Amino acid sequence: MTSVPHVVLNNGVRIPQLGFGVFQVDDARTTDAVRTALETGYRSIDTAAAYGNEPGVGRALASSGVPRDELFVTTKLWNDDQGYDAALTAFDRSLARLGLDQVDLYLIHWPTPGRDRYVDTWRALEKLLADGRTRAIGVSNFQPAHLQRLLDETGIVPAVNQIELHPGLQQAALRDFHAQHDIATEAWSPLAQGALLDDATITRIAGRHGRTPAQVVLRWHLQLGNIVIPKSATPARIRENFDILGFELSADDLEALTALDRGLRTGPDPDSFN
């Protein structure tokens, strides 16, 4: 099978463009799901303190036999732990739950603008990076105004912004901001939690390529240059989502998928979620 392409982050760290997410997978099932993902060929695993499954990820990594330097592990800081000192303490807890001495990418999960702590929190992440406890730092769900404030008030540009992104919510203005500032775009809910998989345009393209609708949408992400982290606890679906490297969407396919943008959010609004 064709190898997974990588994206080079703004500090030179390489991240697989196709990873495996464990959102809404309970801890007991996470270990088996991540093991299946690693056996399938995934090497990037995305979790978060809020998911409650960092221990399950850690168990899978420890028992996988995959060398640590072949893995890319991301976790995220939850809203209640924002602030400089609280963020450093929360990072220690995440690292212990994962059973690791370093993560590859650490993200602020939400800007929570009502709390107004994300700038101090970012300074804590800058310290973790300087201390070598994470190889890269970034954010999740940040809007342009939140990102601009970090650029204006701190020293390091986020390597990644992980955002809700799928054909129904394409976030063109935010992606343009990322491109202008060398911030990688990473997509969560890349399949809109299944809401688009019966769409006539997507099913027609899938039929033409002999692929599933999910594979078409994930391939669209790769060809746009997004990092994408589909999640599933079903072994067959885990393998299906990985099998997107052997075909290519045409320019007409991409144009048809771009036309599906309609501002469809499946998650919270980052401007008001606290």
Rank of each mutant, 00 (worst) to 15 (best):
G99S: 06
P5Q: 08
A236K: 12
D120W: 14
A87T: 12
L245Y: 09
L224T: 10
L197G: 09
V73R: 00
A136F: 01
A136C: 04
D101L: 00
T36G: 01
W110L: 11
A48C: 08
I45D: 00
G99K: 05
V157N: 01
L105G: 01
D46T: 09
A251C: 11
A184T: 14
R115A: 12
A206M: 04
W188F: 12
I183R: 10
S250G: 15
A256W: 02
L249K: 05
A37E: 01
T36W: 01
A236R: 08
D92C: 07
E126N: 05
T40Y: 01
L191S: 02
A48M: 02
P144D: 11
S272N: 08
A62S: 09
L38D: 00
P16L: 03
L222Y: 13
L125Q: 06
T89H: 08
I156N: 06
R93T: 10
R29K: 15
V22R: 02
R239M: 08
A86G: 05
D104S: 10
R93Q: 15
P16D: 05
A62C: 07
P144T: 09
E153V: 12
V157Q: 04
P167I: 13
I15G: 01
S250K: 13
K76P: 07
K76R: 11
S140G: 12
R35A: 09
A233E: 15
A259F: 07
V139R: 05
F177M: 09
S232N: 05
H209E: 04
P5A: 11
T40A: 04
G114I: 03
